[in-house]
């Protein structure tokens, strides 16, 4: 049912092949969040992975750094139609954090300071696809962008990259998180435009 808007030119009429459908290239970094920015000090920050056996794998700030950071350059895609290309990040690979985690569950509920949650299949978090990020564009993550640490899962829409991340809980089924209960897609692949349900 595509309608042609004959007076609309757009910016040059073509787009970068790195942009998924419906996305626009931005150079700034917009902020989106559902409530006040929580102030999470590094000294009281920690990250915990909890399994079905109630085993908790926990890292405080310095322990996280000791796991080992890596540098990533990636594109990010927000469901509100903007994408940022070639963005430099630094973070700890989720693969490293799961090295000693024993679980038979396939899904993860990510939890944040301030109460935000988002659900992910474990297979979207492993094999070099996700990080606990602590720096972006060469600087420590600012609070409004999720500092001191946020999840980074750049192959999915950015609401999955939970700000102020504090832990992951293993789940037997793909239960919806905050936005997934409030109208956003359960998985959120930008190349398939999995925005809403």
């Amino acid at each position: 049912m595509t309608v042609i808007n004959s007076g609309f030119g757009g910016r040059g009429g073509s787009s970068d092949p790195r942009l998924p459908p419906g996305q626009t290239h931005v150079y700034d970094w917009p902020v989106l969040s559902t409530g006040p920015t929580p102030n999470v000090d590094e000294s009281r920050w920690s990250f915990t992975i909890t399994t079905e056996d109630q085993v908790a794998h926990r890292w405080n700030w310095s322990e996280l750094q000791e796991v080992g950071v890596e540098d990533i350059v990636t594109d990010i895609h927000c469901v509100t139609h903007w994408s940022k290309l070639d963005m430099a990040w630094r973070g700890v690979p989720i693969d490293r954090l799961f090295e000693d985690v024993e679980t038979s569950y396939d899904y993860v509920m990510v939890r944040s300071y301030g109460g935000y949650t988002t659900n992910l299949p474990l297979e979207d978090l492993l094999d070099g696809q996700a990080w606990v990020a602590t720096e972006a564009e060469g600087e420590p993550l600012r609070p409004e962008h999720g500092g001191p640490a946020r999840l980074l899962v750049p192959h999915l829409y950015f609401w999955k990259s939970a700000k102020w991340v504090r832990g992951m809980e293993m789940m037997p089924s793909d239960d919806p998180g905050f936005w997934e209960q409030n109208g956003y897609h359960l998985r959120g692949d930008p190349w398939r435009e999995e925005r809403y349900w």
Binding site: V26, V31, G35, P36
Partner: peptide, 27 residues
């Protein structure tokens, strides 16, 4: 939104009672 939501928390409002929406994304 950052300024107002921060002040509201300082003024004693429960952060979970404050819902925010921001614009300034794609042009």
């Amino acid at each position: 939104v950052e300024a107002v939501a921060g002040w509201l928390v300082e003024l004693g409002h429960d952060p979970t009672q404050i819902r925010t929406e921001r614009f300034g994304g794609s042009r």
